[in-house]
Design a binder for these strands. Structure first.
Lengths: 326, 326
DNA sequence: TTGAAAGCGGTACCAA
DNA sequence: TTGGTACCGCTTTCAA
């Protein structure tokens, strides 16, 4: 790997001059610049970003913290983040926290140690202490509006929509899934749903979920159909649990959506591929990632931020686990 | 952010001594160490990895290059890589190449500029030039055995298994999908399949795919059912295209698996969630990621590598798009 | 318009 | 057992 010094020698100038042509600042005579550029070409020189980062106390890296990339919700989000960053010349350092506060802290520390210039976090931590007095801006993704900077979608409204679609489409004995307490956006959905259900005065039950996994969905689905066999509509916490419920219903010979309607939340890719395809509340997952990156870049560049909390709209996606509007 | 110098001052020792306690090498008197540790605690000091990296000419980062994390095949792989790395104290720098040679090169360059110590690449590049005389070891993932170090699964055998299961389960007019020429592992599957089909002397057609996307799968599915309505078995290039074919078949009222059997390849998560659930050839995706990371770490540590090419086994997963063995 | 040199925050060699 | 210091590769100030 060639260094700036070698380039300088070859071009017969000082390193300062090379640095000037590299960064295109300060005065450089045209022919001097030419000589330098030739030397750079000949040596195949690329500047060492580590040295730059050390001096400038900042890198081109942004840290992205996710609960688990294996959860189909997150790849799309990560892609949104990356696409936006990439356009702005930033790069991604990435870690799965796996719901471990310790692992999360470890990643944050490593990020900071490496002069990362910003952080995007989509973890579900109960505890914000990990993020206190960080020397870099942080944007929280998909976690409601409680933090200083955040990008999220309108969970309460999504929950409302789910409930009113369910009612509109004829369900009268509804079971609502309540996601784990520490997952903020899932609580908001739940609230929105309950609000509408209470107002409309329809019968409903609540089943609590310990996690948002497929397996937990299966377990609870079993419980639902055993305890509340008369249920004719299920509002799930997310698409993964909705899919689990769909499976359990199908394997019990329930006709979907005729006997039971199901509405999910998120609109992950696979929701259109299950059978029957899943009606759901769509979050603009990719855009959420993109917006978070945009906001973070503004913060990094110290540009004015008009909206520290960006709330994106959700919408109902009508597929085949719900009936026609009556 | 405290620096080593501040720690040294506070502890009343030299930076050299602080460095020694930090790295736990060289002689340090017990009470000196105590003083230093106290100073570190009081200042909340964490060493700057950038400075370390500059001096040592290596970081704790490994670059991971993927075609597209949004493709459900890759998250699991990335997770395998990360889990292994994390245990060894390495971190992940990550980029989606998006099938663009240029973008790929850009990422590789950035990785190198940042003293990354190793590279894992799962892209489909036709062109290996991007990887020539890199100063760091590279492991190629899911790309056959042609490169110096590689981790992949036995595609040829997988293709054979798919064909023989298809025949065993009664299909006699088989359509085989042929993935894009530049995607190596997909070609191997194809070869294995053809080999068995020819040997068994059964009727078959080949349909070429321009990509492995769901949309392309839909297009070709249409073509298959129009051109070869008598097809009674379809061997897809991967699970995504298999799922597309399943949809098209279902929407044409074909009974699956009675009229047409379908076998996919990969066993991505969603394959067990589609309906009917997809019979497929399972690749150990997570383990592939993990093995690649293991191999790379060996290379980085300059440990002996007995196996530069690691081929993992595939297996048939019997689900509901295939019939009982006759 | 150019170059010399200090400094970013560590590590490691050598001398004390 | 400890400290002084050169050095990693770059940027930037200051002087020429």
């Amino acid at each position: 790997m060639a260094t700036i010094k070698q380039v300088a020698e070859r071009a017969g100038v000082s390193v300062a001059t090379v640095s000037r042509v590299l960064n295109d600042n300060g005065y450089v005579q045209l022919d001097t610049r030419k000589k330098v550029e030739e030397a750079i070409d000949q040596l195949g020189y690329i500047p060492n970003e580590v040295a730059r980062s050390l001096y400038k106390k900042e890198s081109r890296f942004i840290g992205l913290l996710l609960p688990d990339i294996t959860n189909p919700f997150f790849p799309e989000m990560a892609r949104g983040v990356e696409d936006e960053l990439q356009e702005e010349g930033f790069y991604l350092l990435f870690g799965n926290s796996d719901e471990s506060l310790e692992r999360e802290l470890k990643y944050i520390q490593t990020f900071v140690q490496n002069n990362v210039v910003g952080l995007i976090s989509a973890t579900n931590l109960a505890d914000k202490a990990n993020y206190d007095n960080l020397p870099i801006p942080t944007v929280f993704l998909d976690r409601g509006s409680q933090s200083e900077y955040s990008v999220y979608s309108d969970g309460v409204e999504g929950g409302r929509i789910a409930a009113s679609e369910m009612i509109k489409r004829g369900s009268r004995k509804i079971t609502v899934l309540k996601g784990p307490a520490h997952v903020m956006p899932v609580q908001e959905r739940f609230q929105g749903t309950i609000e509408v259900l209470v107002q409309a005065n329809v019968d409903f039950q609540v089943i609590s979920l310990e996690s948002l996994s497929f397996q937990e969905g299966m377990r609870r689905a079993y419980e639902i159909f055993e305890k509340f066999p008369e249920t004719d509509g299920i509002i799930a916490s997310n698409d993964t649990t909705a899919t689990a419920i769909l499976h359990e219903a199908l394997s019990r010979g329930k006709s979907i959506p005729d006997e039971v309607q199901i509405i999910g939340f998120d609109d992950i890719q696979q929701s259109s591929l299950v059978f029957p395809s899943l009606s759901t509340i769509r979050q603009p997952i990719y855009d959420m990632g993109r917006e978070a990156a945009k906001l973070l870049i503004k913060l990094i560049k110290k540009q004015a931020v008009e909206q520290p909390h960006i709330k994106l709209d959700v919408s109902y996606v009508n597929r085949n686990t719900t009936r026609k509007v009556k």
